[in-house]
Computed example of a mutant assay.
Amino acid sequence: MHGPASSGWLLVALCAATGAYCLLRMRSGVEEQRRAAGGEALMGFGMAAMAVPTTAFTPPEWAWPVYAVVFGAAGLRALWAARSGRHHVHHLVGAAAMVYMAVVMAGAPAHAHGHGTSGVPLLTGALLLYFTGYVLLSGVRLIPVAAVAGGAAAAGWGDRPELSRACRLCMGIAMLAMLPAM
Rank of each mutant, 00 (worst) to 15 (best):
G133P: 09
L79V: 11
L176A: 09
S118E: 15
L122R: 06
A13W: 15
W9K: 08
I173L: 12
R35N: 07
Y21R: 06
T58D: 12
V99G: 03
Q33W: 14
A102P: 06
V99S: 10
A17V: 15
R27T: 15
C15F: 10
R168S: 10
A68M: 02
W157G: 12
M98I: 12
V66F: 14
A96Y: 06
I143L: 01
R35H: 07
G150N: 09
W62D: 05
M178W: 07
R35Y: 06
A37H: 04
C15R: 01
L10T: 15
S138E: 15
L24W: 01
Y21P: 02
T58H: 02
V93I: 11
P161K: 05
H87C: 07
P144D: 12
A5D: 09
A181I: 13
A97H: 08
E32Q: 14
A20D: 13
C167N: 09
A126N: 07
F57L: 12
L128T: 01
A95I: 04
H111A: 09
L142V: 03
P161I: 10
L92E: 08
W62H: 08
V140H: 15
S28M: 00
A149F: 00
L142Y: 10
V70L: 07
G151K: 13
V12F: 04
G75P: 00
W80I: 09
R86S: 11
A56Y: 03
A63T: 09
F45C: 13
A63R: 05
A181Q: 15
L24D: 08
T117N: 13
S164E: 15
C22S: 13
A153Q: 11
L169K: 03
G116C: 02
G38P: 10
G139D: 08
M171Q: 07
G158D: 02
M1T: 04
P65A: 11
G151R: 12
V145K: 11
A16S: 15
G39K: 00
V104M: 11
M98E: 03
G156A: 08
R168I: 14
G72H: 03
A82S: 13
P161E: 04
G8I: 02
S84K: 13
P161N: 06
Y21D: 02
A147E: 15
L42Q: 11
G119C: 02
W9V: 07
P53C: 06
G8D: 01
V99N: 06
M43Y: 05
R141T: 03
R168D: 12
G116D: 09
W64G: 01
A174F: 06
G3A: 10
V89H: 12
L122T: 14
A126K: 05
G114R: 13
V120C: 02
A177N: 10
H91Y: 02
P180R: 10
A49I: 03
Y67A: 03
R77P: 01
G3R: 11
H91K: 02
R27I: 11
P65W: 04
A74M: 06
G119F: 00
A17P: 08
V140L: 10
Y130R: 04
